[in-house]
């Protein structure tokens, strides 16, 4: 224990420096981060999700998400037998406080589906913004310039996934930033950092050493609403066809 304490005391200044470094500057200012070297997205491994709501809470705490609005949320599906067109879906308070216990369903299956902005390559929301207040960055993240947004809500209407909302106080469009302030500093997103089972993983499609490439080689994945042809980049492993 004594050794640990000494270790701790030795490490303290180093940690402080590391932390200052983590906090430092913008991507342009940081020599370690070049936007064009990255193409961010996320992998959701549905069989691993336990519906604890950690991601929803973490997102709200990290990004000051206003009450009653969600940058990410979790849905619980119940699909009985072959009735894929009429699943029973719940998401109480976005799954923020988890889900009520479910009793065994003899003729059906349960599963959880975490949702977030798909950071689409051909995003319908950025397409319709009248002034260029929302855009996809060179590293593949769809962001909102909240000092420029009119609050016309056209982007909210254009998103097929319901990922956007108008911030009740700021009166501008708000949405998942893929924790852009974290991923540009070498950290993962708040939701991925706090997912206890690894059901959510930040991926960098431009990084050849990212485990996503091996994963995609051996798994069958899907994006949400592929018929929308939005170029959605959030990949779901073992996504059921009833999910919309």
């Amino acid at each position: 224990m004594n050794l640990d304490r000494r270790h701790f005391l030795v490490m303290l200044p180093a940690a402080a420096i590391a932390w200052k470094y983590v906090l430092a500057g913008t991507p342009e200012a940081s020599p370690n981060y070049t936007m064009t070297d990255h193409w961010w997205s996320m992998l959701i491994d549905i069989p691993k999700c336990i519906g604890c709501g950690n991601c929803v809470r973490a997102c709200a705490a990290e990004n000051d998400v206003p009450e009653g609005h969600f940058r990410t949320w979790v849905e619980r599906y119940l699909v009985t037998d072959w009735h894929m067109e009429s699943p029973e879906v719940i998401s109480p308070d976005g799954g923020k406080e988890g889900f009520p216990a479910a009793a065994e369903e003899a003729n059906g299956k349960y599963f959880f589906v975490p949702k977030l902005c798909n950071h689409c390559t051909n995003s319908p929301c950025t397409q319709v913004c009248p002034v260029g207040a929302t855009f996809i960055t060179p590293d593949g993240v769809v962001l909102v310039d909240q000092t420029y947004c009119l609050g016309c809500a056209y982007c909210v209407q254009a998103c097929p996934y319901g990922c956007r909302y108008i911030h009740p106080e700021k009166k501008v469009a708000d949405k998942c930033t893929l924790c852009y302030h974290r991923i540009t500093k070498g950290l993962t997103t708040a939701c991925c950092e706090n997912c206890p089972t690894g059901a959510r993983q930040l991926v960098d499609l431009k990084d050849p050493s990212d485990p996503i490439h091996a994963f995609l080689k051996t798994h069958y994945v899907q994006v949400l609403k592929p018929q929308m042809a939005t170029g959605a980049k959030v990949f779901y492993n073992e996504l059921d066809g009833s999910v919309r």
């Binding site: 397409q127 319709v128 913004c129 009119l150």
Partner: peptide
């Protein structure tokens, strides 16, 4: 939400937006 910003529609109109 921000009526005061509406002139942006004239200054930086986004070519792909119908609005």
């Amino acid at each position: 939400g921000h009526p005061e910003r509406s002139p942006e529609m004239y200054f930086t109109p986004h070519a792909t937006s119908a609005m």
